[in-house]
Structure formats: structure tokens, C-alpha cells
Nucleic acid binder design. Structure first.
Lengths: 345, 345
DNA sequence: CTGAAAGCGCTAACAC
DNA sequence: GTGTTAGCGCTTTCAG
């Protein structure tokens, strides 16, 4: 690291001229090619460092047949840590690999998603992490099939590795927890089955009902897009129209809305109503009683996504197999706490 | 928008050949240069669209003297909406302008920050939004001075526009609120004065003390780096060593830690201890009583940052003055709720 | 108004 | 091992 003030950027040609070698040799040395005499390579690298040389990634990526200068990160929403925190953490992890992450928001709009993917392709990204929108367009799917992709939270049906919270298991466990406390009339507020994780969560809930000897058809449920507002209104409706003693939530933003609705309803928690929320503990740290929580490990999801993406890039580059397609599950923990208690008689 | 399957990408040369014009004309037409006959321009654009042409941003940015293909977004932490949510929202807003946002995390390490800035410069970013680390290096400062920059949350002392929450005012108001409830022994958990916003918040608190006729020197305070863990330990220490009846928090992550410590202390809120937290309402939505909150408008901060950055880019491009340097304040709202009450006798 | 040609800074064949 | 040279795909003088 040199303290020199950098003048109008030095390039490979400058270095080559200054050292009396060719640009090719400079390029090779800087890229760690074995086809250059070690001592020469060292001299070049040292000089480059002293001159404060910073390679132009644009030129590099444009020229190189393959480059991992950039990767894309495509998510539908911005207002939950499931996306924003995972994105930020991935950026941190990828930078250690010298890769810059371009962040793109689709607002769950398939057209925007396609557009975003086109733009990213135009930027010659090496690969991407994506949380697909609810209805992925065929053109989008084609675009995804052509490059290293890691799916996050949601699956789009392409043959790519994906990182998901093991929500089926968590939901099953949650229902069992409630049933174990004597609850038989359980309400579920979750995301639509059209979302891959919505379907999985609901399956977990049904599974749990069956396990506990409850008829899954008696489940009072509301499936809505994952926003706080919809969580709130769905819960108001659920509480007004059915006679549940416990509510289970399948979604982070939903949990906030559900919690608001429960509080607004005036029901005492857990005396009159038990509640299991979902998501990031930070969102609920001030709650009293602390809520029973399906705690999703966002940092772990990010680590897993970053690792799989890097593996996929390596594989793509070297023609090796690459990470296994299909789900890579991160297990959330059910943390029982004060918002769940025995069912009222 | 065409449904065609794109073959190995079409470029300006293809378009030029197919239409019997030169690449220069194609380029001009696609960039909306007035120096091309409208009907020709229209024909070119139409054809480009039909062929599913997507310009290569790398080549464009490499070639053009000025390009806004990419901007940088540099933040220290990932685990709070103050950063992650604002980043995500900015990405959304900037994409409407056709600009892609490269996200970088510094972990509040000045060396990493400098490194990140070098890398971004290497990517020929048009400008950037940055939350400077606690001690900005001189080299970093020099790098920042050479391009359009918008500061976020924290100021580094360079002549750039910045977007900040008007925390001084919010803190003053909060102290007045507490004093109005009869509290005289107030504790403050905030960020160090070395952080620009830490200093500002503390000034606001002191100002509020003076306003309320309290001696600012009686303020029991703990200034720590903004993490949940430190917020927690600082609060444990504060509660153990001093005899406060109210705690005010200056920081989002800190608030979570403080809330945890308060709960762990067993003190009844607000009967024995009043609490004012800071940050994103979603984090506290499940709290009962709902906490009195200094509610920061992250979406508004993001909008403001995106707008200023785009203005700065325009200005840089056209040589016009550009947005005013200095703070552009977004006013947080003090939302009094159940965690603050009359001081115990 | 349009075209020819020279790069942007780097990598990658292909020679030596 | 190293140098020469031709691009990557686009923008932009400079002529016409």
C-alpha cells in the first residue's frame, strides 16, 4: 500500500514502458500466470504496487472471455432483512473474492425482473443470486439458464442450486409446539402457494396438524402477499371470522402486521391468544413477553448463497460439475418464549 | 419488448450493417443525439428494439468520457435498516435512471474503505453514496474529492452534500419529553463523538437538558460503537452504576441491545424506568407497551440520497453548480407511546 | 447530417 | 518465457 497520490491513472502500458517489458507480460504477471519468470513477475507486481496501479475492471471484463468483476443480486423487496440484510452480507462476503455486487430490486414485478436481468447481462455479470418473482417469465427463465445462478428464498423451477430456510420443518415443529400446549383451533397467516416458499410453509403447517392428530382442513388460514399491511388486514379478518386460540405466521413482514393486528384486537397474549412469529429476532427484541419465534438465520443464508455462487462461478469457468442444483437448506430454530402458552379452556 | 430469443448478442455493428448505416449513426441514434435525422433515428431505434439489442454497458462506459452505468454505495455495516434498507431502496430508485448500484461493505474499517473506493474507481463509477467510517484516511478523502459524492448518516468533512436524520432536534425533543414527565436523572446510550452523528446526537441531548433546566453534566451517558452487543453491555453498566429513571438511546442497533438489557434488568417499563428508543418501527412493532420511538424515515433518506446523487451526476456532467454541499436533513418523528411515563417519586 | 477511423485499457492468440 | 497484434463493443473526434 503506497501513500503516493495517484496521477491520472496509470495503466498496463505505462507499467510496461517503465519496466521495459510488454503489456502482455505485465498482464500475465498481474494475473498470476505461471508463464512468466517468477522474478520478473515479482518485479512487475512490486512496481505496479508502487505506482498505485489499479486495473480498470471494465476494460478487463470487456476484454476477457470470462471475468468475475461483477455479479448480480436480484430481489423483489427492500423492506425486510430477509432480502436487504442478506444482500448486504453477500456483498461483504463477495468483496473478499474481489467481486463487486450489483444490487437490483424488482418489486416482485416479472417485467421489471426480466428488464433487470437484461441490464445485468449487459453488464457482463459472471453470475447472480436471485429471489425470483412470483411468476417468472419464460424469457427470464431462458436468461437464467445461461449463466451461474443461485436462487434465494424462492425457487423458479430452473436447475440451479438454491438457498432456503427449511420452513417446512420449522412450521411443522411450530404446530406441534402449539398442539402440545393444547391448541386445536389454529390460525395460519402465510404467503400464497404460488410462491414456492409459501407452498412449502403451508405444507409444513398441514403436516404439523396431521402429526398432532388435528384435521388439516380445520386450519383457519389467510394467504396473502408478504407485506406488513396485508398481514395486518388478514389477521384482523381471521380473528373476526374464526375462533382460533393460536396464530402462526409464515413470513417476516407478515409477522409485524400480524403482531400489530393482535395487539389492536386487545386479546391478551398468551392468555387468550398464543402467537408464533417468524423472522429476525431484532425485530422483536423489545417485545414483552418475548415472542415465540421461528428464528431464521439470515447471516447463514447469506454465507451459503455467497459460497454457492462462488462455487458455481469456479465450476462454470473450469467446466467442472459445480454445486448441486436443488435446495440447500438452512435450518431455522423454533425459539419458544412468552407469546405461546396453554390454550384457554 | 420483443419475444425473440436473443442469439449471441447483437451489437452496434450488426445493427449498422443491417440498416446500411454507420456505427456512429447507430450510436448517436441510440443515445438520442440531436445530430441525426429524426426519421433515421426512429428507424434505428425500432430495429434495435426488434433485434433485442442490449447495449454492453462495460464497453459503453469504457469508451465514453462520461458514463453513469454504475454508481457505488459504501456502508460500514449490514445489520441495520439504517444501512441495508436505505441501500436497497436507493438501488430501486437509481435503476429507474438506468444506473446500476454496486454495494460495498467496509465494516467500519478505514483500510477496507479505501480499498473499496479504489475498486469502485476501477469500475469507473459515476459517483457514490457513502457512510464514511469513523476515521477516514487522507487517501480516501482525496479519492472522494474527485467525484460526485453524497454522504449518508455520517459526514467525513469533505465538501459534499449529505443526507442525515435531524437527530439533534429529535434528541432535544426526546429529552424535553422525558423532562416533561418529571424525569431529572436521565441516562443516554449513544455513539461516540468521533462519529459525526454521535456528536450531533449528544449535542441534541445536552441541548435538551439545558432547555429543561437540567444540568447537562448530570447526564449519565455511555458512548459506544453502534452494535447491539455494546448497547446491551453499556446499558447493564449504566443501570448498575447510576440511578436513572429514564434511558434515551441514540442509535438503531443500540436500541435493540438497550431494550434487551432493560428487560434483563427486570425493571418495569415505564413504572420504574422510561425508555426512548431510536430507529425503525418494524423492529419494535411487537413491543408491549409499544415503545416511545424516535422514528427515522429510512425510505425518505433513501429518496433524498438518490435524488442528490443524480443531481450531482448531472451537475458534474454539465459543469453546473450541483446540489448544495452540507447537510440535507430528514426530520425524524418522536412518537410518544407506552414505554415512557411519569418519573417514579 | 453522416461516415471513417481512432481509441477506451485490458486480455489472449499467435509468433518468436 | 516474452513480445506483437488483434480485438472486446462502444463512443467520439474529425472529415466530408
Amino acid at each position: 500500500m503506497s501513500g503516493r497520490t495517484r496521477r491520472a491513472s496509470v495503466g498496463v502500458v505505462d507499467l510496461a514502458r517503465e519496466l521495459g517489458v510488454s503489456t502482455a507480460t505485465v498482464s500475465r504477471a498481474l494475473n498470476g500466470s505461471p508463464a512468466v519468470r517468477p522474478e520478473v513477475a515479482e518485479r512487475i507486481r512490486k512496481h505496479a504496487d508502487e505506482r498505485g496501479y489499479v486495473p480498470n475492471r471494465l476494460a478487463r471484463a470487456l476484454s476477457a472471455t470470462t471475468s468475475r468483476a461483477f455479479v448480480g443480486f436480484v430481489i423483489p423487496y427492500v423492506d425486510t432483512p430477509a432480502y436487504s440484510a442478506v444482500a448486504a452480507e453477500c456483498a461483504r462476503l463477495l468483496s473478499a473474492d474481489g467481486t463487486q455486487m450489483i444490487l437490483t430490486i424488482t418489486e416482485n414485478d416479472p417485467e421489471r425482473e426480466l428488464q433487470a436481468l437484461r441490464e445485468l447481462t449487459a453488464s457482463r455479470i459472471a453470475g447472480l443470486v436471485i429471489s425470483p418473482s412470483t411468476h417468472v417469465l419464460d424469457d427470464t427463465r431462458r436468461l437464467l439458464e445461461r449463466q451461474p445462478v443461485v436462487e434465494l428464498h424462492r425457487a423458479s423451477g430452473i436447475a440451479a442450486p438454491g438457498v432456503f430456510s427449511d420452513d417446512e420443518r420449522a412450521m411443522t415443529e411450530s404446530v406441534r409446539h402449539l398442539a402440545g400446549l393444547g391448541h386445536t383451533r389454529i390460525g395460519y397467516v402465510g404467503t400464497p402457494e404460488a410462491l414456492s416458499n409459501g407452498a412449502i410453509r403451508l405444507r409444513g403447517v398441514r403436516h404439523g396438524m396431521a402429526d398432532a392428530g388435528l384435521d388439516p382442513d380445520t386450519l383457519a388460514m389467510r394467504l396473502v402477499e408478504p407485506t406488513r399491511e396485508l398481514g395486518r388486514s388478514a389477521t384482523e379478518d381471521l380473528l373476526a371470522r374464526s375462533d382460533v386460540t393460536a396464530v402462526l405466521v409464515g413470513g417476516g413482514s407478515l409477522s409485524v402486521g400480524v403482531a400489530e393486528a393482535v395487539r389492536a384486537s386487545g386479546r391478551r397474549v398468551p392468555a387468550e391468544l398464543s402467537l408464533v412469529v417468524y423472522g429476525d429476532p431484532a425485530w422483536f427484541s423489545l417485545a414483552d413477553p418475548p415472542p415465540t419465534l421461528i428464528r431464521v438465520e439470515y447471516a447463514e443464508l447469506a454465507r451459503c448463497a455467497a459460497r454457492l455462487l462462488l462455487e458455481a462461478l469456479d465450476a462454470h469457468h473450469s467446466g467442472m460439475p459445480g454445486p448441486e442444483p436443488g435446495p440447500h437448506l438452512v435450518v431455522p430454530r423454533l425459539v419458544p418464549a412468552g407469546s405461546t402458552g396453554p390454550a384457554p379452556d
